[in-house]
Nucleic acid binder design. Structure first.
Lengths: 205, 205
DNA sequence: GAACTTAATAGACATTTTGTTGACTAACGT
DNA sequence: ACGTTAGTCAACAAAATGTCTATTAAGTTC
């Protein structure tokens, strides 16, 4: 669990400054790699003094995290607004649409040699390995209902995400338990568990 | 699909140089944030001239990608070595053990304000939202067979991974289709599809 | 093992970026 | 209206970058 830092109410000037800095960074990141962006450039575009940056953040990375937080808060707003209760499908559709509508930003974020690229690379590495494994064992004439590439990404994403969770939480379970959970969830899905709890699954399609 | 660049056979000196640089970077990353590491420091630790770095890489980021590739190749070796055929469970156990054994490196990689942190942050953001949704609808006395935190991470990882895949592949499906796939895979699992293809699932537990 | 080819070195260079300072002024909250 | 504090401006030393040349040493090829 991430402890949200105790956020004191900010001055209107401070809120404005941080917003300007965030907008400047997210705008710049669509033009060049994150690592190539200088603090000078950010403050220039935000039309703020460079010293002001240091009043709020220590590094570009801190600003990036803050900026993304803003971006995702917007997304959550969208999802909360337009969902049927417990209709996960609808929420996911909104997420995909949101990414599409902000595709320039998101593409930039995960583009080669930018902020999110490493994660993409790792997941892709796992997924390619997984695809290879699957293809070895699927009869060449068999056409699965969901493309193999997508199944691989699903499994790879789950594995990646749980590896990090496990790592950042100081290994609360054994590797065998973790692998068991993944096996169970990927193979059998989670519907069984949820329905056992009396949750009704709504399929929005 | 990532196109592997046409790798020409490297000189023994070049191989050595790149290996030294990779080791230096992965060693440094365990001591300080990636963004704080300078090229000077990397070459110092590798005991190479700074100019040599530029003979191989343009930026720190390029070196990082290359270094991680090495690291993951090792992992794949491990998995290929010690697996029963089609026993996904066994492979995942090896992955978790590998991360544990290299925990200092991996922790560093996903630590605050380092290379992989952004991805972790995004997944965590999605997962917290997902946890919240689940908890709202699970009866307080119900104890699910898999911890809710873990289910959330599973779903969040899948969503994250597929969002990026979809984005980087220029939106080959509609948002509705993508959400449908996720719904299907998360809820019902993938075993059905695989068994339909004649694949025998082995549970290693 | 000799001959060619090229990677790595060393030192130097101008340039850019960084992080921090202190005095000033403009905007904020109560 | 007042006291407080965020943002500005200019300046600064220190550090890091990227590129260059000439030289040395190690590789590859035959």
């Amino acid at each position: 669990m991430i402890s949200t830092p105790p956020k004191k109410k900010l001055d209107r000037r401070q809120r404005r400054t941080r917003l300007m800095l965030s907008e400047a960074l997210l705008s710049l990141i669509q033009e060049k790699a994150f690592s190539e962006i200088t603090i000078q450039e950010i403050t220039d575009r935000a039309d703020l003094n460079r010293a002001t940056f240091y009043l709020h953040y220590g590094t570009k990375e801190e600003l990036l995290v803050d900026s993304l937080e803003r971006q995702f808060d917007l997304l959550v707003q969208e999802i909360r607004g337009s969902r049927d209760f417990m209709n996960f499908w609808e929420g996911d559709v909104v997420a995909f649409r949101h990414v599409y509508e902000n595709k320039t930003l998101f593409k930039a974020l995960f583009n080669d040699i930018s902020a999110g690229y490493i994660a993409f690379r790792i997941i892709d590495y796992i997924a390619e390995f997984s695809t290879e494994e699957l293809l070895e064992h699927i009869p060449p004439n068999y056409q699965p209902p969901i493309p193999v590439e997508i199944i691989s990404r699903h499994v790879a994403g789950s594995l990646f995400s749980l590896l990090i969770w496990w790592l950042r939480n100081d290994f609360p379970k054994t590797p065998e338990e973790m692998a068991g959970y993944i096996q169970e969830m990927c193979m059998m899905g989670t519907a069984g568990m949820l329905m056992e709890a009396g949750i009704e699954i709504i399929n929005g399609q």
